[in-house]
Structures are given as C-alpha cells and as structure tokens.
Design a protein around this nucleic acid. Sequence first.
DNA 1: GCCGTAGGACTACCA
DNA 2: ACTGGTAGTCCTACGGCG
Length: 804
Amino acid sequence: MELEGVIIDIDHVPLADRSIIRITLKSNSGVYSVLDKGFYPYFRLVPYNKNIDPASISKMSFRDMQQNQMPVHKVSKTRHSLAGKEVEVLKIEANSPRHIPEISRMLAEFGERYEYDILFWKRYLIDKQLNPLHGVSISAHDDDGILLLDSIKGLEEEYKLNKDLLQLCFDIETYNPAVVPRPDKDPCIMISYWIDGESGVLTTKKIDRKFVKTFATEKEMISAFMNLIKEKDPDIIAGYNSSNFDVPYLMKRAEKNGMSFRIGRYDEDIRQEHHGLVEAIRIPGRINLDIYNVARFVSIVGASEKLIKINRFTLSEVYRAITGDTKITVDKNNIWQIWDGTDSDREELADYSLSDSVTLNKLYEFFIALETETSKVSMLTLAENAVSTTGQLVEVLLMRYASDNEELVPNKPEQQEINRRMSNPIEGAYVKTPEAGIYDNIVVLDFRSLYPSIIIAHNIDPAAIAGPDESVYNEAPNGIRFRTKPIGIVPKALKKLINDRKEIKKAYKKDPDSKTLAARSSALKILANSFYGYLGYARSRWYSRDCAASVTAFGRSYITMTIDDAEKAGFHVLYSDTDSIFIQMQKKSKDDAISFLNSINAKLPGLMELELEDFYLRGVFVGKRGADAGAKKKYALLSEAGRVKIRGFELVRRDWSNIARTAQKDVLEAILKEGSKEKAMQIVKNVLDRLRDGKVELKDLIIYTQLRKDIDKYDAKSPELAAAKKAIEKGAKRKDEVQGATIGYIITRNGNTISEKAELDELADSYDPDYYINHQVIPATLKILKELGFTEEELKGGGVQKRL
DNA sequence: GCCGTAGGACTACCA
DNA sequence: ACTGGTAGTCCTACGGCG
C-alpha cells in the first residue's frame, strides 16, 4: 500500500537479534505504524592502514559485557572528505545501536572512529533525507498484520493534514503534607485535562462540580486517565514541567499501585532520557511537549525576534506575559490542607486544577506554530525539536549537509579540548562610544543578517580554510584565507535558510494573517542567526576558532568602513554597535542619507546589504556612571511614526524596581515626546515625595533576580542571596524553590547593610525609602536629567535629603 | 577605627 | 550548554589617615 503523511514519532524496536526502525505516521486516513527492516545502525572508521580488509573485520568476534555475541552486520568501503581532504573510510554496520559503543571501542586500535554517537533514528532521518513534519511518502506491505516498509521518501510538496495535530493538555495535583510531594508516599489527588474543547478533572473525593469525575482509588483514577488518552488518541501530550514532574510522578504512582503508566500508542513504557541538561520523556507513538521548555526556548532564543519577554517561568507568569490576564491560583504549599479541608475548599482546588489545563492549552496555542515551524526547518520530530538547544539544531542540520556532501561528521570534543577552547575566546564586535546628549533627527542604518551574509559572501567554513601554498582564496581581515570554492556546508546551509526566508516573506506579504508563515520566517531567522555562535561554541563538532574570528573580523571591518565613509560624506556618526550605525542628520536631507546608503551597498559583496532601519526625531544617550564617556548599549529613540525604542536602560531590566523603571520611562518619554525639561524634573520630584511619604506600594519595589547557582556555591554575598537564605531559615521556602529560580526581594527598614535589609517579596512588610531614593530612583533618572543640565544638588534640593 | 575606592562576583542586557 | 561586549550593583579588601 501507498501512504502519505507526517511522521509523529520515529524510534526503534529491539528484537532478539537486531533493532528495527519504527515510524508512527499520521495520514488523513489514520495513524499507521510502519517497520523498516532495511536499515542498520553504523559508525565509520578511517583506518590507519589503508590495506585493511573489510572482510577481516566482518569475521572478527565481538562480545558485550555479558559475553553475548555481537556480530557485525556488514562492512563496506566508502570515500569521504575530512577537513577538505579525501580519505578511505570503512562503514561498519551493526545489528543494534546497543552494539555500537563496544564494537567501535574494540576497533579503535585500527583507526579513527567517526559518527559513532549519532542516534539510530536520527541517522535514519538524515540518510533517507526525511523531514518528519513536512511529510513523507511510504510504500509498505502487510505482513501478518504488521506493516513492513518497502520504500520511503520525502515529499516535495508539504503534506497537508486536514486537521491539526490533536493535543491533550494535562496537569496533576499531589498530596503534600511534607510540603514537597514524595512520589513514593504521597498520592496524586487530581488529574485535570483539556482535549478538543473538552475539559475535566479526575479525582478521588466527591466534589460538587460538573466537570469532576470521582473514583474510588488513585489506581482507578490513573487508569481512567490512561483510558481517556487511549480513547481520544491525541498526537501530542502537553504539560507544564511535565517531563520533570507530572509524568515521572504518575509513573511512580502507577508503579506503587501495581501497574504501569502507559499512554503511548504502543503497549510500551514511557522512556526517560537525559537530553543535554534537560530531561526528555519519550511517549512511544506520540509527542511529548513540555510547554515549560518551549516557553524558555522562545524567550531566550526568540529574544532578538521580540517574540515575548517573560521574567519568571511559572505557568501563571507566562500566561500573563502572553495574554495580559491573570489566572486563579492556590497556595501550593497547602494543597494537602485544602484537600483535607471543607467541601468548598476542594471545589476551589478542582477549579484551580481545571484552570491549569485550560491555561496550558492557551499557552500551547500560542507556542505551537513556532514550535512546528522550527521542527520543519530543523527537520527533526516535534518532540525532539522541543528538547533541543539551538546548538543541537544547527548541528543536526549540518550533519545533513555533511552527509549529502560525503563529508565525515567531526567528533564531539573531549572535555580537555572544550576547556582549551573556552580559555581562548575570540575577539567580537565593534562598539563605538557615543557622546552623551540629546540629539534631533537621527537616521539608523543596519546590516541585514550581518554574520550570516558574511559567512555566505566569503565562504567561511572549517573545510574551506586554504593552506599556505594555495593561490585562489579570499583573505579575511585577520589574515585567515578561505578558498572561493567549493562552497562549504556552513555557507551552503545558511544560503538555503536565507533564500527560504526570502520566499516565505514574499508569501507572507500576500497573506499577512498567516501565523504559519510568520512563524516559519522566525524559525528560519533563529536558525540562521545561530550559525556564527555554533562555529565559536566550545562543544561544537564544527568548532573553528579561525572561522568564528574571521566572521567578527569581517564584521568589524564592514561597520568601521561604513562609519568612515559616513564621516567622509559629512555625516556625524553618533553611535554604532556590531551591525548598526546611528547618524545625526544635522544639515543633511533624507535623500542624502539614502544616497549614502546606496553608495555603501554598491560596494558590498554578494547578498550583503545595509538597510534603512528608520528615521528618528530625537534620541537620548547618557553618560556612564562616574565617567565622562557616553554609555554603550543604552539609548532611547522616538521614531517619526511615534514609536519609542529603548535599549539597555534600567527600565528594560528586571533587576530594577518598578518604581525606578517607571520613573525613568516617564522621564525619557517626557524628553523624547515633549522635550520638557521641567516636566522631567517634576516627575522625579513626585516619585521621591511619594517614596518619602511611604505611599508607594510594596509590589512596585520588588527587585527580581535569578539565583543562577546552587545556593551554597556563591563566593559573594548579595541582597538576593541574603533574602533567599533568610526565607529558607524561616522555613518559608525550600532550597529547591529558590535555587535557579528568579526571586523577588524588597529592601526593608530592618537591618544595617543592604543585604541585611533584603527580604523576599512575600515576607517583606516595610520598605526603606532611603534605599529606593538613593539607590534606585536617583541613579536611574539623574543621568538623564544631567543631560538636560540639571545637577544632583538641584534634584536633591527639590525635596530630598541625602541623610536620614 | 574610619573613610574612600579598586577590583571581584554577579546579573542582565545588546547585537 | 550558540558568541563576545558592556553597564551597573553590592561587597570586600586594602591603603591612607590620625
């Protein structure tokens, strides 16, 4: 039979003598499971002795630790290129991926080993050139009720499912008399879900709510949840931090109840795997999607795309960030008391539980387009894409190009090599020091995708570095020479991403409401922007100090050339950072700026392009604290269209209080929009008065900071650390609640030093006006008012005493 | 012992 | 656990002073 569809999941099933690939395919006619017996896991060996006979390796006897035979399936000769040179390679196929580590170890004495750590199913996708969500076409036959694959290939046209992938969102509540729930002792008390518009709560006590179903035991409740999944057959199981909490917890509870928590499409256990630093949950035949990971990924990687900015990654904070609404909540530490409380307590708990799943579904709807489109670009399954870092996405993409080009995939570096790379960083971008001041009529120009376009224009690739005796090359400003051809896999991959994005943008213009097109464009940009970083990443397979240093050297050269030309043409350059240049127009017209832009573009190679970012009516640059020089990476602009663009100022930083941030924002806007010196001063005076009079709400005084390290591993004392430690001592927080978390604290009146005065936001009952005046509002606003000609004394004279 | 400050640890930002 | 460049806070150690 012939099948077309998207790959939901791909894994392998271990049989007695070998492992075979299994594909879970979703087609418009249903979900199919197809086995491919024609593919074997393998690694490659570059033998020290070229005359080594493949047959002799085939005949060797390999045994594992338990002395089980591990026959080699097949050994064949290939030719591959390695760092730009042709080499003879042996491809050694095994029967099971489990055999690869041992067989490759035993062959280490015969040569250099490569590609021994590429996962079996990933290898399959790469070698067969498949893109799971884009769609595949399969030819298979029925063998006693099992579908066996005859051939598979990727589809040219994207496969259109007539319905979106079906998601089930769920969340659990647990009994927690010890505050932190103990999976071996404390039962799961509620499971809430949302699927296809239907939502409900499964529980074990009678609760008077229509959406609640009550079961006699925890075991029956978990079984009912498993049955629900079986019956509704979702493609995606979405939770919030579910890979670390909900799923492992239910697995443990099921085990305690003498059963197995199985929610896949096959009668198999869920697999828990380490994936870099995150825990990955594999649900056979379905897609596990932990929205917590997704939100973090988008927030970190999508930052440049301005997708979202989230300060804290709790479910309710993320919900608030994307919808502006707040969700209902309960005191998490007291769930067990609520559960043991009154009927109405339990009704509220059920409402809360339900709201978590409903909320989660809204987050799912918000993130799924980008997640799906990133998967199509990375050509990984949705579940794998969701647990991958950008580094891993770039890596797997380059593996595909290496495979197409018959290049060996470089090995991952050993720890010693990683340390060596990290201790030797490269020089980065150029940043011009601005002159503090307030300027009118500014034009901002920037290079479109500077680093990707440099890599493409100059064929920057580890395998393209020319030797000293070669004559055809392009020399980077740092002296590294790159062959002009053949085109390396790094520029080749980038060019495809950039060309694809051009096409998508064209389509988007015709269909501006398409979320899919917008998300695909973002996904392409995120991937393209990660290549330079990957070249300089210490753990990268394609690390190349020379390449990364050449990219930034070219970058510095292009931007300084642009600055010099602008000045030669009579413009005043205010500021520049990496790929952008801020020009004060003075007597020049917009046409002059455009013709300058054109003159630069006329001499740029390839698809490199300087773009007009925007014209601005006014801009503010401030001085560095305690120095004459202007501060870099800090500016505020007002565009002709009335858009305010603010970068770097305290008001965009979460580790400043709301009161200081708001005051700074109001001052900047008063200057930008109204040019009013007096109004700016009045804003600050009002805030200082309110602070002194104790009229400011505590919530506007919270300072948020992440405790990035283990709480005992800090060398330095800090207010946030002191506040966290005090909360732990009081028993208000557990270590694991604050470690790695973004905590909020307030400087109170109790104590002498700032650290002594710091208390977690929920524990603080006063604030120290002196601190907020002299350490928050004044530093944030004074440097701006200074540019208006005010002095510190005038500000203080406006009603502030420095002394208590 | 008090004061001012250089320098380290740390975080969050820009590109 | 993609890069480097940067500002800024808080704290501590240190040196000068008396």
